[in-house]
Design a protein around this nucleic acid. Structure first.
Length: 263
DNA sequence: CTGGGGACGGGGCCC
DNA sequence: TGGGCCCCGTCCCCA
């Protein structure tokens, strides 16, 4: 029986924005009760598809190799491109990705930075609910050559900066929480987060461990569980060389005072 | 104190 | 450009 279903210490110590102050209260994505089973089944692959015997058997070994391996190409870590200022001309919709207005007709060539800034605001940059004031560096085209200026989009709720507008829009969803559970009313930033939450109501656990068949509703939890089957865990204390299955366990180990000797 | 499960957040990549 | 998905991570709770 789940221990903390729906009874999360609500206003616990975790810092959360005061969502009640946000203007966007209209859910754009909800699961109603009873659930649309056909939709859910279409969205969630059957367990045999998600069973780690098919897709995750190497996870443990991958994670063992992780400290030495370079799993991601460095090129993939680099920003693909500097956002183009002309992309800012059609920001009339909420961050939902739905209900977006047709793109504005292409703006005429901008002849100066001052006209650029005023044109952007006139075209809707300032009207986008989550976007802060037009960043200064975007007011000058020369700033685009400065690598430091690549984080150009600001969230008006928390002032975080993003290089890509899409990333900012995605971030803003964490403030507006447009996906609402039809059962308990809890709101989420993304549909798949809501989908995972719905599993706490349905009890569905599509992710199973290939070693012990323990089932999980969440792939991350399965990944953490797979660490428990490994003799050498992913996270290692630099002082005593002891390994842990989770970063949090390593942190607790270090905070409680590492004895120092290897175990 | 430690190990582990449950629930969830968020950035980045791919299509 | 947006949505889906993956991965990494955090926090809470319990045994």
């Amino acid at each position: 029986m789940p221990r903390s279903f729906l009874v999360r210490k609500s206003a616990c110590s975790r810092l959360r924005p005061n969502y009640s102050e946000l203007h966007d209260s209209s859910p754009e994505f909800t699961f109603q009760q009873p659930y649309d089973q056909a939709h859910l089944l279409a969205a969630i692959p059957p367990p045999e598809v998600l069973n780690p015997t098919a897709s995750l058997p190497t996870l443990i070994w991958d994670s063992l190799l992780a400290p030495q391996a370079q799993p991601i190409g460095w090129a993939s870590l680099l920003p693909r491109e500097i956002p183009k200022v002309v992309e800012l001309t059609s920001l009339s919709d909420e961050d939902s990705g739905k209900g977006s207005q047709p793109p504005s007709p292409p703006s005429p060539a901008l002849s100066s930075s001052s006209t650029l800034a005023s044109s952007l605001e006139a075209d809707g940059y300032a009207a986008f609910p989550g976007l802060g004031p037009l960043p200064k560096q975007r007011s000058g085209l020369s700033g685009a050559k400065d690598p430091r200026s690549r984080k150009a989009f600001n969230c008006k709720y928390c002032n975080k900066e993003y290089v890509r507008l899409g990333a900012l829009k995605m971030h803003i969803r964490s403030h507006t929480l447009p996906c609402v559970c039809g059962t308990c009313g809890k709101a989420f930033s993304r549909p798949w987060l809501l989908q995972g939450h719905v599993r706490t109501h349905t009890g569905e656990k599509p992710f199973s461990c290939s070693h012990c068949n323990h089932a999980f509703a969440n792939r991350s939890n399965l990944r953490a569980h797979l660490q428990t089957h490994s003799d050498v865990k992913k996270y290692q204390c630099k002082t005593c060389s002891r390994t842990f299955s989770r970063m949090s366990l390593l942190h607790k180990h270090q905070e409680s005072g590492c004895s120092g000797g290897p175990r």
